[in-house]
């Protein structure tokens, strides 16, 4: 075999393998979505998902308490985590852009961004659950806030950096103080980017299970008491999928479908907003 032919064959072989690798990746996504639809869709119409709370084994019921708990804890988590994260991101992008401290903070934030979520759960357990003496929805919300925080810091800094320096200079030249420039010029200019960051952090925390296991725990009944354990979709899916009861398993699949669809919807919406921002923006 000539050297030229061998090189050509090697080229075709390697590139086909890369195509196969991509197909494998896509196949996994397709397989997971297909399984979710196959096992979860029937339950959405068969059970009173949105109107009744989780049933006892063998009984009939829905996921109302879990959906309510997930929404409430995600919202509180975002309400705590996002403002702090946006302020910190503002510091990194505006006030401390070149400070040595900022380099350290960026690094620490990146570490927090990829820290295992179960560690966050243990941390909040040690901080809140131990001192309060019991599991509670508020502890669950705080652990979600800790996970949302680094995400918002990162996206806020990235998005603020996209605002053209000329706009900020123009505001400063008119005599505006820095805070006025940031709140009246920079934030509005970066608005859709900031909203994207918010959506991404909501998507990130709404499927988190590990940190809720020993902070919010779970609740068989409907509860709106923030100071008590609260049901939530991920933990319900976790316990019900491992249970031997068929109706619980079916509920787990329906919950899984519900949660995946909402997260994929949020992610796609965020991407759509980003691409509306203009080509090239939003890339790291």
């Amino acid at each position: 075999m000539s050297r030229r032919l061998r090189r050509k064959l090697m080229n075709v072989f390697a590139l086909s393998l890369s195509g196969v690798a991509t197909l494998i990746g896509l196949a996994f996504l397709a397989a997971i979505l297909w399984t979710l639809f196959k096992n979860g869709l029937a339950g959405l119409t068969k059970f009173p998902i949105f109107s009744q709370s989780t049933p006892p084994p063998g009984g009939s019921g829905g996921l109302l308490n879990a959906i309510y708990g997930s929404v409430v804890m995600t919202l509180i988590g975002i309400l705590i985590g996002a403002p702090i994260g946006m302020l910190a991101g503002t510091y990194l992008a505006e006030y401390g852009r070149t400070a040595r401290l900022s380099i350290v903070i960026r690094f620490v934030n990146d570490v927090l961004l990829s820290a295992p979520s179960i560690i966050i759960g243990l941390f909040v357990y040690e901080m809140l659950v131990v001192s309060m003496g019991h599991f509670s929805a508020i502890a669950g919300a705080v652990s979600l806030a800790v996970i949302a925080l680094p995400v918002t810091v990162r996206t806020t800094e990235d998005m603020l950096n996209l605002v053209p320096q000329g706009m900020k200079d123009a505001s400063t030249a008119m005599g505006a103080y820095h805070w006025r420039t940031i709140t009246s010029v920079v934030y509005p200019a970066a608005r859709s980017g900031l909203v994207t960051g918010l959506l991404l952090s909501i998507a990130r925390i709404s499927g988190e299970t590990a940190p809720l296991l020993f902070t919010a725990l779970n609740n068989q009944f409907f509860s709106s008491n923030l100071n008590a354990p609260m049901a939530n979709l991920p933990v319900v899916i976790f316990t019900y999928a491992q249970s031997p009861y068929e109706n619980w398993q079916q509920l787990a699949w329906s919950g899984a479908l519900l949660i995946t669809l909402s997260i994929l919807f949020l992610s796609i919406l965020a991407r759509f907003l980003l691409s509306a921002l203009g080509p090239g923006s939003g890339r790291r």
Binding site: G25, G207, P234, I237, F238, A256, I259, I263
Partner: peptide
């Protein structure tokens, strides 16, 4: 491929 990263880990579990 990026959406695969957005799927929550509990879904991969079940």
């Amino acid at each position: 491929i990026e959406l695969l990263a957005a799927v929550p880990s509990i879904i991969f579990g079940i």
